[in-house]
Design a protein around this nucleic acid. Structure first.
Length: 698
DNA sequence: ACTGGTCAACTTTTT
DNA sequence: GTTGACCAGT
C-alpha cells in the first residue's frame, strides 16, 4: 500500500486552524470497520483538502457516503455539508445510499446535487443582482435548438446549410472553457453567439451552460453572496472530479472560502466528458488551488473478477499520459470475457436477450442483474422490442424520450408560460396549439413588432400592439388567448395542477390529441402520457410544497428523466443504458453491444481526434461488469433502412487475449439461415478479425 | 385557416 | 425509421 505525502503534517495544519477539533478517527459513532485502510483514511479525514484517486470499482461511492455519515456522527452539522456530482444518476445514487446511513432528520439537511442544480439554487435566490428576473426559464436542448435555428435563418438566409447542433456544440464548448463571445474569431459564429445571448436575456431564459457561467459570476462579483454560501457549506465534496470543467472548477474555488475543506474523488481513466469541456488536468491543478492536499489512492477493486479487470487494464494501457495505477482484485473468477460475432443487429438483440433469459431462468439470476450497454441511444430500440416481445421487464436509463413527446412539450409550454410569459419560445409553441385562429402570419407580425419595440411577444399581444396589422378576426383570437392565459396563470398561484387541468379542459386538449393521431392506440398512449405527467406534477407539488410550480419546472429541466419516480415498472428489470450513463453503476452481467468501428470509437470522435477518450469510454463499459462480460460485434447493421457492413472495433485487438474467448453465436442458439455466409470456424479474435476483413461486406 | 400529404435529412455522448 | 419542413387543396 502506498502512502502519499505528509498526512500528518497536514493534520497539524488543520488542527491549528481548528484547535477544537479532535482527530476524526477518534470520533464515536459511525462504524468504519467495513472499509479498507485507504478508504477509512479518506472517510475520516474531514479537514483540509483531500484528493482521492479511485480506480473503477474501488468502492468510491461507498467511501464518500461513509465519509458523509462519519462527518455527521462526529458532530459536523449536516446542513454545512455539500456533495456535488456531475450527473443526476450519481446524485440520486448517493442520496439513496446516504439515506440508509444517517438519521432521517440529518439526511434531509444534507445538500447532494449536481453542479447545475446547485447553480439553480444560487440563481433563484440572487440572479436579480445580475440583472435577470428571478422567474427565468431554463432552456433544454430543444428550446436551444429552436432559438439557434431561428437566429441562423434570420442571419444566414433560408437556405443556409448549418446545423444548429454544430453551432450549439461550438458555443457550449467555449462557454464551458470560460470563454465569451467576444473572443470568437469566426465572424459569423461571433454574431450568432452574441445574438443568441441577447435573445435569451430578452426572453428571461438561460441555458444549461449559463447556469454555471452565471452561478460562477454571481459568486465572483458579489462577495456578500459568496460569503453567504461559503459560511453555509463548510465541507464540500466533489464526485467524478475528472469530469469537471473550467467553469465548475471556478465555481468550486469561489464556493469554498478560506477553509479549504474540500474532498474530491476522481479517476483519470474514466474521464469521458471531454466534449463538454471536462479537463482531466483539474486533478493535477487541484494541488495548485488547494495546496498540500492529502492524496489517497484506492486500488483494490471489489467489483470485477480478475479476467474482466485484466482485460480492461490491457485496454486502458494503450492510452498515453495517464497516471499508472495497479488495480487488483481478490476475486479470481473462472469465466473469461466473451466476444461474439453476429450477422446483424437484429440477431445481436436476439442473442443478447436470449442470453439474459437463459441466465434468469437457467441460473436463477434476477433481471436486475443484467445490463445492455451501447454507444448511442438509438441502439436501444431493437433491444427494447426484443424484451417487450418476450415480456421481460426492463428499464431504459437516460434516453430523454418522455419529455421529448410532443404532447408533453405542449403541456410544459403552457406551464412555463404561467411562470414566465415573456418566454417567446414557449409562447409561440402553444400560441396556436390547438388551432384557435392565430395564423403563422399573425405570429410573424407579433414577432416583428416585438423586435421593433424590443419587448416580449407576450407584451405585444397583451397591449394590443398588433394594431391593424392583422385581421379583426385574428385580433379577437389573440385577445381570447391572452385572456385565457391570464385567467389560468392567476389560478395557478392557488393550485398549479388544478389550473393546468382546467386549461387543458378549456382548450379541449385531449380532443386535439385524438384528432391529430392516426390510430386510437397512439391517441391512448399520448393521453396516458399527459395524465402520467400531470400525476408527476401532483406528486411534486405535494412533496415539495415550497418549491411550487417553478420547482417542478426546474426539476424537469434539470433531471430530464424521471429517475426519482417510484414507477416500479421503470425501476425493475434489465437495464438498457448508454456507456456514458453507465458510469458509476455496476451489474453482475454486462453485455457491451455494437463493438464496431464507427460506434466505439465513434466516427465523429475519430474526426475530432479523441481516440483516447473513446478508449476510456469503452473502459468504463468493460469495468461495469462484476462476474460476466460479453462483447457483441455485428457484421452488418441496419442503418437508416439499409444493411451496411461493419468492421469490428480496433479496441478488440488491444485486449489481452489471455482472458478473452471468441464465442460463436451458433453455440448458444440454433443457427439462422444467414449464418452460412459467415466464417464461423475461427479460434481467436484475431483470426476472426482477419476473416472479416477479407470478406467483401458490400 | 387548417389539413393532409410527400419528401428530405438526420442520428454521440449529458446537464 | 422518424421528425420536421414545405406545398397544395379544402
Amino acid at each position: 500500500m502506498q502512502r502519499e505525502n505528509a498526512g500528518c503534517l497536514h493534520w497539524e495544519l488543520a488542527k491549528r486552524r481548528h484547535p477544537a477539533m479532535l482527530p476524526a478517527s477518534m470520533a464515536k459513532g459511525f462504524d468504519l470497520s467495513k472499509l479498507n485502510g485507504p478508504q477509512r483514511e479518506a472517510a475520516s479525514t474531514h479537514q483540509g483538502p483531500v484528493l482521492i484517486l479511485a480506480g473503477a470499482g474501488t468502492g468510491k461511492t461507498r467511501t464518500i457516503t461513509a465519509r458523509i455519515a462519519h462527518m455527521v456522527s462526529s458532530g459536523i452539522a449536516p446542513g454545512s455539508i455539500l456533495a456535488v456530482t456531475f450527473t443526476n444518476k450519481a446524485a440520486n445514487e448517493m442520496k439513496e445510499r446516504v439515506r440508509g446511513m444517517v438519521a432521517r432528520g440529518a439526511a434531509s439537511k444534507l445538500t447532494l446535487c449536481t453542479f447545475h442544480s446547485l447553480c439553480v439554487r444560487l440563481l433563484r435566490r440572487d440572479i436579480t443582482k445580475l440583472g435577470y428576473k428571478s422567474n427565468f426559464t431554463i432552456y433544454t436542448g430543444s428550446e436551444q435548438t429552436g432559438l439557434i435555428r431561428r437566429i441562423l435563418v434570420r442571419r444566414g438566409g433560408r437556405d443556409l446549410k448549418i446545423e444548429p447542433g454544430v453551432v450549439i456544440a461550438a458555443i457550449s464548448s467555449l462557454k464551458n472553457r470560460g470563454v465569451g463571445p467576444t473572443a470568437e474569431e469566426d465572424p459569423f459564429l461571433h454574431m450568432v453567439w452574441e445574438e443568441y445571448e441577447r435573445e435569451k436575456r430578452a426572453l428571461n431564459a438561460v441555458d444549461f451552460d449559463d447556469l454555471l457561467v452565471l452561478g460562477s459570476r454571481l459568486l465572483e462579483k458579489h462577495s456578500e453572496t459568496a460569503s453567504y454560501w461559503g459560511e453555509r457549506f463548510r465541507y464540500i465534496m466533489v464526485d467524478e472530479f475528472q469530469d469537471t470543467n473550467r467553469l465548475q472548477m471556478d465555481l468550486l474555488r469561489r464556493l469554498c472560502g478560506t477553509e479549504h475543506n474540500v474532498c474530491v474523488v476522481g479517476d483519470d481513466d474514466q474521464s469521458i466528458y471531454g466534449w463538454r469541456g471536462a479537463e482531466i488536468t483539474n486533478i493535477l491543478r487541484f494541488e495548485r488551488f488547494f495546496p498540500d492536499p492529502k492524496v489517497i489512492k484506492l486500488e483494490e477493486n471489489y467489483r470485477s473478477t480478475m479476467p474482466i479487470l485484466q482485460t480492461a487494464n490491457s485496454l486502458i494501457r494503450h492510452n498515453t499520459g495517464r497516471r499508472e495505477k495497479r488495480l487488483w482484485s481478490r476475486n479470481s473468477g473462472e469465466e473469461k470475457v466473451r466476444v461474439v460475432l453476429l450477422p446483424d443487429d437484429r440477431e445481436e438483440a436476439r442473442f443478447v436477450i436470449s442470453g439474459i433469459e437463459a441466465g434468469h431462468y437457467g441460473e436463477g439470476m434476477k433481471w436486475e442483474s443484467f445490463a445492455v450497454l451501447f454507444r448511442t441511444n438509438r441502439q436501444s430500440r431493437l433491444f427494447e422490442e426484443e424484451l417487450r416481445e418476450r415480456r421481460i421487464p426492463y428499464r431504459m436509463i437516460g434516453g430523454q424520450s418522455f419529455f421529448d413527446r410532443r404532447e408533453i412539450k405542449d403541456v410544459l409550454a403552457y406551464l412555463t408560460l404561467m411562470e414566465n410569459p415573456d418566454d417567446d419560445i414557449h409562447l409561440l409553441r402553444v400560441l396556436n396549439t390547438p388551432p384557435r385562429g392565430i395564423s403563422t402570419k399573425t405570429a410573424e407580425e407579433a414577432i416583428a413588432v416585438s423586435r421593433e419595440r424590443e419587448c416580449s411577444v407576450w407584451r405585444i399581444l397583451c397591449t394590443g400592439g398588433l394594431g391593424d396589422r392583422v385581421s379583426a378576426r385574428a385580433t379577437n383570437a389573440v385577445a381570447a388567448f391572452v385572456e385565457m392565459i391570464v385567467e389560468f396563470t392567476e389560478a395557478s398561484r392557488e393550485n398549479a395542477a388544478a389550473a393546468i387541468r382546467g386549461l387543458l379542459e378549456r382548450i379541449e386538449f385531449s380532443d386535439f390529441i385524438r384528432r391529430s393521431c392516426k390510430t386510437p392506440e397512439e391517441a391512448n398512449s399520448r393521453e396516458e402520457a399527459v395524465e402520467s405527467f400531470l400525476g408527476d406534477l401532483d406528486r411534486h407539488l405535494e412533496t415539495h410544497p415550497k418549491a411550487g410550480l417553478r420547482g417542478f419546472l426546474d426539476s424537469v429541466a434539470l433531471n430530464g428523466d424521471r429517475d426519482n419516480d417510484d414507477d416500479l415498472e421503470k425501476k425493475k428489470g434489465v437495464s438498457l443504458i448508454t456507456m456514458h450513463a453507465a458510469k458509476g453503476l455496476e451489474f453482475p452481467v454486462v453485455y457491451v453491444s455494437g463493438v464496431e468501428e464507427g460506434f466505439i470509437p465513434h466516427k465523429r470522435a475519430l474526426e475530432d481526434g479523441s481516440l483516447d477518450e473513446e478508449r476510456r469510454l469503452f473502459y468504463v463499459g468493460l469495468t461495469r461488469a462484476m462476474k460476466r462480460l460479453i462483447l457483441t460485434v455485428c457484421i452488418t447493421r441496419n442503418k437508416w433502412g439499409q444493411q451496411v457492413g461493419c468492421q469490428p472495433s480496433r479496441f478488440l485487438d488491444e485486449l489481452d487475449p489471455e482472458h478473452v474467448e471468441s464465442a460463436d453465436f451458433q453455440s448458444f442458439e440454433p443457427p439462422p439461415l444467414e449464418a452460412d455466409q459467415v466464417g464461423t470456424e475461427v479460434k481467436s479474435i484475431l483470426a476472426m478479425l482477419q476473416d472479416i476483413e477479407d470478406v467483401d461486406l458490400r
